[in-house]
Amino acid sequence: MRNTAKITAAVLAAGTLTLGLTACGPDGDSASSDTDGPLVVAASPTPHADILNFVKQHLAKKAGLDLEVKEFTDYITPNTATEAGDVDANYFQNQPYLDDFNKKRGTHIVPVVTVHLEPLGLYSHKVKKADALKSGAIVAVPNDTVNEARALKLLADNGLITLKDGVGTEATVQDIAKNPKNLTFKEVEAAQTPRSLDDVDAAVVNGNYAISSGLNPAEHALVLESAKNNPYGNFLAVKKGNEKDPRVKKLAELLTSPEVKKFIEDKYQGSVIASF
């Protein structure tokens, strides 16, 4: 049985405010400076929590690290909980997403060490090749700023659309310059993209949500994001000022160990790629 606490976004949204009020002092900094207790890390279930649980079960005790893993199914609460001091760190996101999150929400989360890449992919229950999508096909894409831009770039790199020159990590469907198949885009929450596959012709799905829904990116994706020069590596992150917490430094070392690299390679077979 996995010793992992599963917390829904709804419950935590209510709890974060209460806990945040008690965790912060008059200057807004976390009042907890205890580095002797367990290191509590928020993570997406797959593959992040799986990797952390491997560390917990096989490496942490020997290294003298007391690790507690809490699972979150959304991309917002892990950062707000880290900012509030409800958890000590998180492991679920990439740099463009974090930059956008910090800018829009006024948080102060910083990366510690990059661990892996989850290639974004285009999936379908109706066609077996991307070029088989018919004119007017409906394609679901994540609705958050960074992942929508990433999804559109994936489609552009594979010739399904053309984006306007100069658009980067904030591209939206309004930045599509050419759409030869007249694709219609349905913007949905990233976590819902796998579930949308029965209602749309295709969907661009983040790697962790693909894996957790039974999709194998290396086998099932119509097109898959390249790992070469990819800025979307997922990392361990903390609130600024906590980077030197000895527990955090110890976990960073374990997450980039040969044992973890082998675990990623053996378990995910190319669907998740170690970035170290």
Rank of each mutant, 00 (worst) to 15 (best):
Q57G: 09
H58I: 09
L59P: 00
K61S: 14
A63K: 11
G64C: 10
L65R: 10
L67G: 03
L67D: 02
E71P: 00
E71A: 09
F72N: 05
T77D: 13
P78S: 04
P78W: 03
T80D: 05
G85M: 04
D86F: 15
V87K: 04
Q93P: 00
D99T: 12
D100R: 08
F101C: 01
F101I: 01
N102D: 15
K103I: 07
K103A: 14
K104I: 09
R105F: 11
G106K: 12
T107L: 06
T107E: 05
T107C: 07
I109T: 06
V112F: 06
V112K: 03
T114Y: 09
T114E: 07
V115L: 06
V115T: 06
H116N: 13
H116W: 07
L117D: 00
E118A: 13
E118N: 15
P119Y: 03
G121L: 03
L122Y: 00
L122G: 00
S124C: 05
K126Q: 09
V127R: 03
V127S: 06
K128G: 12
K128I: 04
K128H: 10
A130L: 04
A130Y: 02
A132D: 15
L133D: 02
K134M: 09
K134S: 15
S135D: 13
A137T: 07
V139Q: 06
